[in-house]
């Protein structure tokens, strides 16, 4: 086992009768919203939420915190793989996002650079719909995306992959930021949706 295996949620495995399942920092918030969960690649993922169709008509908000995230140094060369999103933090650092099922392949593709598995480090809140831009404007001044900076008084990142907006923040601030984003979304008629609904509405 690598010295840093304890950093990777994906390194958990069935052992001694235990079946570890990873939970997002937003797990409870989605449960409170009545979400249905499925276990996917070792994570409990909120696949659907009551009322999500109506929410998506204005702005639907979901939790993509189950995505694998690597911090890679140096940032170059950028991986050009389908479904893999790279967010440059600086000339030396980048965050690489991918579905958990592809984490091993992506890690290998990153080669012998300094790579940290930070899949447990972030809450990833995604939203889409006609009012998505308004929600973003009501939580941050960041507008040339992707960008990093202040979002509702905390530091985070905003990405805009394929028709959706992702707000990425430290997982310990996820609960807070989810409440802020849901507040803004609900004022516009939006609300929580499952990841599958958002994938149909956007390209998450």
């Amino acid at each position: 086992m690598s010295a840093l295996a304890f950093l990777s949620p994906g390194a958990a495995h069935d052992a001694k009768g235990f079946h570890p399942v990873a939970r997002s920092p937003l797990d409870r918030r989605l449960r409170d919203a009545g979400a249905s969960f499925e276990e996917r690649d070792g994570w409990l993922v909120p696949v659907s939420v009551p009322g999500e169709a109506a929410h998506l008509a204005t702005v639907g908000v979901t939790d993509l915190s189950h995505l694998s995230v690597f911090e890679v140094r140096p940032a170059e060369p950028t991986l050009e793989l389908d479904g893999v999103i790279t967010h440059r933090l600086s000339a030396r650092r980048a965050l690489v996002f991918c579905p958990p099922a592809r984490a091993a392949a992506v890690r290998e593709a990153l080669g012998d650079r300094f790579v940290l598995d930070l899949s447990g480090a972030f809450a990833i809140i995604a939203f889409a719909g006609p009012e998505a831009e308004t929600v973003l404007r009501r939580i941050t001044h960041l507008h040339h995306l992707p960008a990093s900076g202040e979002i509702a008084h905390i530091n985070g990142h905003v990405l805009a992959p394929g028709g959706t907006t992702w707000v990425v923040c430290p997982q310990e601030s996820g609960h807070y930021l989810w409440e802020v984003i849901l507040d803004r979304a609900s004022a516009l008629g939006g609300g929580p949706v499952g990841v599958d609904a958002l994938a149909r509405g956007g390209s998450a």
Binding site: F6, L7, S8, P9, A11, A12, P20, P25, D27, Q171
Partner: peptide, 29 residues
């Protein structure tokens, strides 16, 4: 419980103890 962890045998509270550091998403489990 199937989760990789770093166990630090330290004793801030004065008793035999193990401080387990593990990926946040597995903490509830």
């Amino acid at each position: 419980a199937g989760v990789p962890a770093l166990a630090l045998r330290i004793g801030f509270v004065g008793e035999l103890g193990y401080e387990l550091h593990l990926a946040s998403p597995q903490a509830v489990h």
